[in-house]
Every structure is written in C-alpha cells, then in structure tokens.
Nucleic acid binder design. Sequence first.
DNA 1: TTGAAAGCGCTAACAT
DNA 2: ATGTTAGCGCTTTCAA
Lengths: 331, 331
Amino acid sequence: MKPTIYDVAKQAGVSIATVSKVLNKTGKISEKTRQNVQQVMKELNYFPSAVATALTGKKTDTIGVLIPDVSNPFFAEMSRRIEDQAGDKGISVVICSTDYSAEKEARYVQLLLRKQIDGFIVSSGFQSRDLIASLQKEKVPLVMMAQHDPELLVPTVSVDDYRGGYEAMQHLLSLGHRIVGVIGEKVHSSNLRLHGCRDACIASSCELSEDLIVRVPTTVEDGKAAAIELLQRDHRPTAIFACNDLLAIGVYHAARELHLQVPDQLSIVGFDDTILARTTVPVLTTVSQPTKAMADKLLDILLQERVPQPASPEHVLFPPTLVVGESTTSP
Amino acid sequence: MKPTIYDVAKQAGVSIATVSKVLNKTGKISEKTRQNVQQVMKELNYFPSAVATALTGKKTDTIGVLIPDVSNPFFAEMSRRIEDQAGDKGISVVICSTDYSAEKEARYVQLLLRKQIDGFIVSSGFQSRDLIASLQKEKVPLVMMAQHDPELLVPTVSVDDYRGGYEAMQHLLSLGHRIVGVIGEKVHSSNLRLHGCRDACIASSCELSEDLIVRVPTTVEDGKAAAIELLQRDHRPTAIFACNDLLAIGVYHAARELHLQVPDQLSIVGFDDTILARTTVPVLTTVSQPTKAMADKLLDILLQERVPQPASPEHVLFPPTLVVGESTTSP
DNA sequence: TTGAAAGCGCTAACAT
DNA sequence: ATGTTAGCGCTTTCAA
C-alpha cells in the first residue's frame, strides 16, 4: 500500500500534525525533527494524496482548459503553451475537447467542478453563454482565450484580430493587389479581422467590395469551395486572405484544381501561423499569434483571479506579427 | 456554498446514507423516497464531490494520457479519439505532454498518481523504462499505444507497422518505381516499417540497397535535409517513402527547392494520415492508422486491467490502410 | 515546538 | 427500507 501521513508519523516518532507542518512549511518546528521527518518521507517514498488534500479545502493546483477540438492545430498549440507555462508554476492542466457542443461543455464543466479544479480557461468556439454566466455567479475563476468579446463580463486574452486583418490586407495591397478575396469564419474573431481588412483598404484608398467577402464554417473543404467560387468570377481576385490557416489550405487546393500557380497567379495569406502554415508548399504567408505570451497572460490572470474578483474584467490584446512566407508576391 | 450530501439529507428529511444509496443505486430504497431525494437534489442543484468520493477509495473514472507532444498532429488526433471513446463510457481524460523528457514523465506520473487516476495510457516516445516498470510493480493499470515493443511487459495497442511499410513500398513498386528512398525515424516503429519495406522489395525481386535508407530525428527540417541529400545523388530516387507525415512534408519542401514536380518527377508516400496529409498540395499518399479502433481497444484493455492483471500482456495490432492521394504516380 | 482532535464529503458495513 | 457510524488522508485550530 501507498504510505500515508500516519506511516510517516509513526516511523518518525512524531504526530501527523508535525508531519503535515513540515509538508506545508507552516508553524514552527525544530530543524532537527524537520530533517528527520523529511528523511523518513524519502525512505518510505511518501507523497501526500492530492485527493485528501483537496478535501480539506485547499487549492488543487489544477486548471481546466476547454477547447472545441484538440485536433485543431491552433488549439493544440495553445494548449501546449498553456501546459508549459503552467508546468513551470507547478500547476497541472486538464485539457478537454468540447466539440462545439453546449452539452459537452456542460458535462465537462460539471466534471471538472466536481474534481475541484481551481479555474477554467475557455476558448473561442464556446457555445453556452449561460454556462459562463453561471460559472461567474459561482465565482469560479475563469478566463476566455482567443475571443475578445466585450459583451462577456469575463477577462479575455487574445490577439489583436483587427490589427492582424489590417496587416494582412496591407501586405497584399502594398504588393500591388487590387482585387482581394476574403474568406472568414462565422465567428466573432473573424469579424474583427474583416474590419481590419476593410480599414486597410480604406487607408490605401482602394475599395473592398462586400461581395469579395465570403463567410463559411471552418473546414478545409469550406475554404476550398469558397475560393473556387471567388476564382471563377469574371474579374477574379489576384489574392485571397483566409481568416485562418485551415481555410487557407482550402485555397491552395482550389488553386491547384483551377491550375493557378501560387504565388505567381494567386497570392494567399492565412492567419494563426500553425504548423499547417509551414507544411504547405509554398510556405504560407500568415499572421502569427504570440501563443507563448498569450498562454502566460492567461495563467497570470487566472491565478490572480483565484484571490479577489476584479471589478471590471481585464481584456488583454496582443499584437500579431505578419510572417511573410512564399505564398505572396506581386500580381 | 455548494450543497453537500448533508444538505440534501436534511432537506429531504432522510439520512445521508439514504441519499448515498439513491446516488449510487445501491441497497434497497422505496420508490417514494427515491423520487423525493432526487427531487431535492435537483432543487439544490446538488452534485457529489468527486474528491470526497475518491477519498473513500472508489474509482475516479479518470485516466491519464501521456504523450510526448499534443502539438504533434498524430498524438493530438489519437488523444481526441481516446477522449471521444472515454466520454461515451463516462470516463474523463487528462492529457499531459511529456516533451520526450524522462523528468517530465516522472513528474506527471507522480502528479496523476496523487490525483488517484484509474490508469495510464502512455505512448511511443516514452523515455523511461524504469518508470513503466515501477508503475507495473505498483499494479497501476497501464497500456502502451503506438509502440509494439515485445520487450515491454505491458499490453500494447498499435498499428501493424511492418505491414504498413510493406504496403507503402508495394504501392510504389507496383507503379513502376525501382529506386525508392526511405526516410525513417530513430524509433522502434520506424524499424518495423523499414522491415516491411525491405520485404516488399524482396517479394518483387527488386532490391532496396541500404544506402537508400536514411535515419533521422522527427522534424520537418530533418525530412527535408535527408530528402535533399537523397535527391542529389547520381541515380536519384524517383520516389521517397517517409515514415511519418511530418517527414513527408519535409520531402515536399525538398522537392520544391530542387524544382522537382510532385508527383510527376517525384512520388512521395507518408505514414499516419494526419491532417497534414490532407493539407499538402498535392494531397499526400499515406498509410492510415485506424485511430478510432485503436482508441477503443486501448480503453477496453485499460478498463479490464482495472480488475485483474492478465498473466501475459496482450499485444494488439491493427491493420493499416494505404490511402492513395495525388502524390504518387508512375515514374 | 509539538500533539490531540475536529472536521472536509462521501461510502460501506452493520444495526434497526 | 432506513439510519448510525467508522473511516478515507489531510489541514488546522487549540492546548499542552
């Protein structure tokens, strides 16, 4: 059997209270007994039960990360960052895929709550606003990632989507493109990216007609279909900005099907800078999110949340970086 | 405060034992009180604390999945499958990235053990054999995924790597390729895939000279470098089989750098059938692993492990499927 | 400086 | 059919 605090106490000839104190570095204990107890803990290979500890009301040093899908590279990479940062802080991370389903969200939230986790990181694509509201009512520490939605009274960490869209479009315009198609998801962050696009056009006194903007769901196939449609028009775009890398991949497929060379006959820009951006040939020009810094901030907020509840939620925006690959050139 | 079993008992006018019984459907209780208690649980929005339950020694219905890296698409996709399967069985999944580091492995194992999880799924790339041995000594249910290593006395679930390699090579040979380069990782599963390649060549009475086989680490860059080297030889290969999709991507990059058209001037086959295989242009021909079935089996074994320890560990091999994409054609 | 004892919320005999 | 009670392993007053 695994040794318990009682075994250690007996072996060391002290009470369990003393053992607990050396464990937690609380109270006053003589250097001598401390050494002795620690020695015994080593010998017995003793580790306190996290379960028993949690039951006494202490923090569990575990946070839950709720993402729509681990197999989506962007979320996988963010998760990885969060894990790394958390690991450094001695915090463990539970990752759950909610599959864009409000039902699964509820189930996992319930589950993690029962496990007494210290807080949640939820991400864009979270369906149930009610759930978020009820978590807040229960004062469960919570922070939202990759979705800067001012309506939500939740602290938020995301990239500056507007600016990312702006820079992506500006890049294309500065290369000389004048007809640029845009493919966006039907989610909040895509809206912001589109606004950025529009404003970049305005700044270059070039117009972005609304019918060059297509909104789709999020798969590669959606991106391909949208791109094919755009590229078969009379005055076809010479460049396409896709609001995430997955959609951009769809554009590559469309280009291939229509026998258009990338970038010579069609420039493509993506968003997110996931592994996908570096696995295409030619390498995708994309907008990079500072995932490491974002993960760091996410944890900072979550941990500080564990203490007091701030009056008005903090909304942190990180600057995006345009990463110029091989998929863009002058028309 | 969150309601406890006491609150429910008081409100329902029964003892906590009764509440516990309706909760667990154990013992005998009249339909009437059952209804009543359940009603009260609803009203109070009561959910039992998983922590308290675990402390009494019951199973936690949580398993830990240890993978080298969530941001590697193959592992992310496997994790996702495991989660799905587990979800159906009411089991929750904790995913941790061990980063190919024995130290992190030890840390996470310790952590999860302290949290009283019911079992582990560890995967290829796990460094510390000692850790595995000690888990076994402690009789912690454990199953290994994606690494069929007969030396390990652990149940194992993986794809039939040998056969996958065989089919990949056979495909290329049947298209008429005679000089085929092979790029493999320095891990056990790649060895098996290579054996498959060799035997496929022998079966076609065509020889695979050893110097066409290159062993590398696992990144895209490694794949690219190896491919460039292969392709610059005097009698350059007309096709390359890469032992995983990531390496195959590297081959695409190499082809591009050397101005070789895929598939006309160079055929490429990968392995794993991750999302990467479908995001390349042209779409990669690759060997698919039945991730869903594997995840299912993994859980079956783990759950059955929770009861008795089988005498000799089960080693399950799943058949791979060659998925022909657009990256292969006749030379 | 150390120890005794009362919980934390739940389960599982054992009584009734 | 329902209730009483003794733990599970640990933290935390409060005494000594």
